[in-house]
Amino acid sequence: MFGYIIPDKPELKIKEFELFRAYYCGICKAIASRYGHIPRFALSYDLTFLAIFLSSIDTDDIRLDLSRCITKPFKKIPLVKRDKAIDYAAGMNIILAYHNIKDDIYDRSYRAYPILPLLYPAYRKAKKAYQEQDLFIRTQLDELRELERENCPLIDQAAKPFSDLLASLVTEAASGHGEENKVLRDFGYNVGKWLYTIDALDDLLEDIKGKNYNPILAQFLPDLRPKTGKIDKEKRKEIQEYLSFVLNYTLKQVCLSYEALDIKRNKSILDNIIYGGMYNKTKQILKKEWLNESI
C-alpha cells in the first residue's frame, strides 16, 4: 500500500525537489539516529508526504541542516532537522512497516519472516513513544484482516479501516481544533481511501492468480475461479467505470479538504503531489492495459 503518493517529478521546480529530498533524507536520518540503521528500509515516499503536510500546517518553521549521509560519504547534503513532524513520520514508518510485515506473515508470505526480528527492537521503541497511535493502527489492521477473512464484498467497507487509520494519523499529529480537525480528518480519510482503492486495483490481476483477497474481486467477480485470470469485456468496463468514479471522487474530496486548510509552507510541493502525482498515478492505474483491452 505504499509508494503511490509520489511527486510529479518533471513538474517540480529544482528547489522543490531539493526540499522534498531534504524531508526524505531528514526522516531517514531521524530513523537512523533514533532506531538504528537497519530500520531505514522502512522509509517510504507516502510518509514523507505526511511529514511535508504536517509541517505545512504547523506554526513552527522547519530548519535545514547540512549533514552527512551514509550513502554519500564525501558530500554533505541538506536535510530537514529533526522536529515534531519528522520524528512522527519516522515513528509511523517503523510501526506501519512492522505491522505490514506481520500481516504478510499472517498471509503466509514466508519471505517476510527474516525481516521481522530485525525490525522488532525499533518497533518496540516506536511503540513506546506513540502508544495510542500504535494501538489504533493495530485495531484498524485487525479489523481489515477480519473483513478480508470474511471476503467482504464491498469496496467501500473494506477500505474503511485503512481510511480511518490515515485519518487518525493526520489528526493525532496535527492537533487541530473543532472545524479544522474535521477538515484534517476528511483529508486523512480520503487519502487513505484513495491509497487502499488504488492499491486494490493495481494488485487485481496478481490477486486473481494468487487467490489473495481483493475487494474489487469480491465485489464484482465473486465467482471467478482462481488462476483463470480471464475477465470478460463487459465486466472490465463495469469495473473501470466504477473504480474511475470512486478514485476521482475521492481525490476530489482530498482536494476540497486540502483547499480548506491554512497551508503555511511547502504549498507548491503539496500542490504538485496532490494535483500532479496522485492524479497521474490514478490515470496510470486506470489506463492499465488489461482493463482497456478491446478483445
Binding site: 468514479f245 476530489k252 482536494c255 500542490d271 494535483y275 500532479g276 492524479y279
Partner: peptide, 17 residues
C-alpha cells in the same frame, strides 16, 4: 453532477498549473 465531479478533478489540475 456526480459524473461531472469525477471529470471535474481533471480540470482541477489544469487550472492549478
Amino acid at each position: 453532477n456526480l459524473n461531472s465531479t469525477s471529470q471535474g478533478y481533471n480540470t482541477y489540475r489544469t487550472t492549478n498549473r
